[in-house]
Amino acid sequence: KEFRPGDKVVLPPYGVGVVAGIAQRSVSGVSRAYYQVDFPGSRSKAYVPVEAPHSVGLRKAL
């Protein structure tokens, strides 16, 4: 896996977040693995496909 729990990442347009782990989510009846990204200071979460994280701009924070 490219990202691990605890990694600081950037996800446009949300900003800097932390990978909380990998979650299985069902979309249109198909279960897939997603990185769960939490954003400190907020209750917001984002789910990014493990198979294509760069397709939505997910990258490691510098």
Rank of each mutant, 00 (worst) to 15 (best):
G21D: 04
G21W: 03
A20T: 13
S28G: 14
P5F: 08
F39M: 03
A20C: 12
E2I: 12
G41D: 11
L58A: 04
F3K: 01
V27R: 05
A33T: 09
Y14E: 00
Q36H: 06
K45Y: 11
A52E: 09
P12R: 06
V50Y: 06
K8A: 08
G29D: 03
A33R: 11
V19W: 01
V37E: 00
R4W: 08
V9N: 03
G6S: 01
P40G: 11
D38G: 06
P49M: 05
V48G: 01
K45M: 11
V19Q: 00
D7P: 01
A61I: 15
F39V: 02
Y47L: 05
G41Y: 11
S55L: 13
K60V: 09
V9L: 03
S28Y: 09
A33Q: 12
G21R: 12
I22E: 02
R25M: 13
P13Q: 05
S31A: 09
K45F: 11
G41C: 14
V48D: 02
V30W: 04
I22R: 02
K1V: 15
H54T: 08
R59K: 09
G15F: 04
P40N: 07
G21S: 08
Y47H: 03
K45G: 04
P53E: 05
P12Q: 07
P12Y: 11
V30M: 07
A46S: 04
S55Q: 10
P5S: 07
V37I: 15
V9S: 02
S31E: 09
A61D: 09
K1L: 15
D7H: 03
A20S: 11
D38S: 13
V10W: 14
K45A: 12
G21E: 05
P5L: 12
A23L: 15
V16N: 08
K60D: 08
L11V: 05
V18Q: 03
P12M: 09
P53Y: 08
I22T: 06
G15S: 02
G41F: 12
A20Q: 10
V27N: 07
I22S: 10
S28F: 10
K60Q: 09
R25A: 06
F39K: 00
H54C: 11
V56I: 06
S26N: 12
A33K: 10
A20D: 03
A20V: 14
E2F: 11
R4H: 11
K8D: 03
A33W: 15
S44P: 09
Q24C: 14
R25L: 14
V16T: 07
L58F: 04
K1T: 15
K45L: 09
A61F: 15
Y14S: 01
F3W: 11
L58Y: 02
S42P: 06
V48N: 01
V50T: 04
Y14N: 02
E51Q: 06
D38P: 00
K8Q: 10
P12H: 10
A23D: 05
Y14D: 01
L11I: 05
G15V: 02
S28L: 13
G6M: 04
G21I: 04
G15E: 00
G17I: 01
S42W: 10
V48Q: 01
V16F: 13
P5H: 05
L58V: 03
R25C: 15
P49R: 05
V37T: 01
V19M: 04
P5R: 11
Q24E: 10
V16D: 06
V50G: 01
A46D: 02
Y34L: 02
F3T: 00
Y34A: 01
Q24G: 04
Q36F: 06
Y34P: 01
G15K: 04
D38H: 11
R59F: 06
V56L: 07
Y35M: 02
R25W: 13
Y14L: 07
F39H: 01
K60F: 11
V50D: 00
L62C: 14
A20I: 13
G29P: 00
H54M: 08
H54E: 14
Y47M: 04
P13H: 10
D7W: 08
V16Y: 15
V9G: 02
Y35I: 10
L62T: 13
V50R: 02
P40C: 13
F39Y: 02
G17H: 12
S28C: 15
D7R: 02
E2R: 11
V18P: 00
E2Q: 11
P53C: 10
F3H: 09
Y14P: 02
V48M: 03
G6L: 03
D38Q: 12
Y47W: 12
Y34E: 01
L11N: 00
R25D: 04
L11Q: 05
P13C: 13
S42I: 12
K8E: 07
L11M: 07
G6A: 05
Y35A: 00
A33L: 14
G17K: 01
P53K: 04
S42L: 12
G57M: 06
Y34Q: 00
A33F: 14
G29K: 03
P5N: 06
G29Y: 02
R59D: 04
S26V: 14
V56P: 04
V37Q: 01
V19Y: 04
V19N: 01
S26E: 13
P53L: 06
R59L: 09
A23W: 12
A52R: 08
V50H: 02
H54Y: 10
A61L: 15
A52S: 11
P13F: 10
S44L: 14
V18F: 11
R32W: 04
F39A: 00
L58T: 03
V30C: 09
V56N: 10
Q36A: 09
R32F: 07
V37Y: 00
Y47P: 00
Y14F: 11
S26Q: 11
G6I: 02
R25K: 10
Y35Q: 00
R32N: 06
V9T: 04
V9I: 06
E51P: 03
A61V: 14
L58G: 02
V30I: 10
V48W: 03
Y47D: 02
P40E: 09
Y35R: 01
P13K: 08
L62D: 14
G6W: 02
S44Q: 15
V16H: 11
L11T: 01
V10G: 01
V37A: 00
V27F: 11
P5Q: 09
G6R: 02
K8S: 08
V19E: 00
A23S: 12
G15A: 02
F39C: 15
F39D: 00
P53N: 05
A23K: 13
P53Q: 06
V37R: 00
V10R: 04
Q24L: 14
R59N: 05
G21T: 06
S55C: 14
R4C: 14
P5T: 11
G17E: 00
I22N: 01
L11Y: 07
E51H: 07
S26G: 04
R4N: 08
Q36D: 03
A52D: 15
G6E: 00
K1M: 15
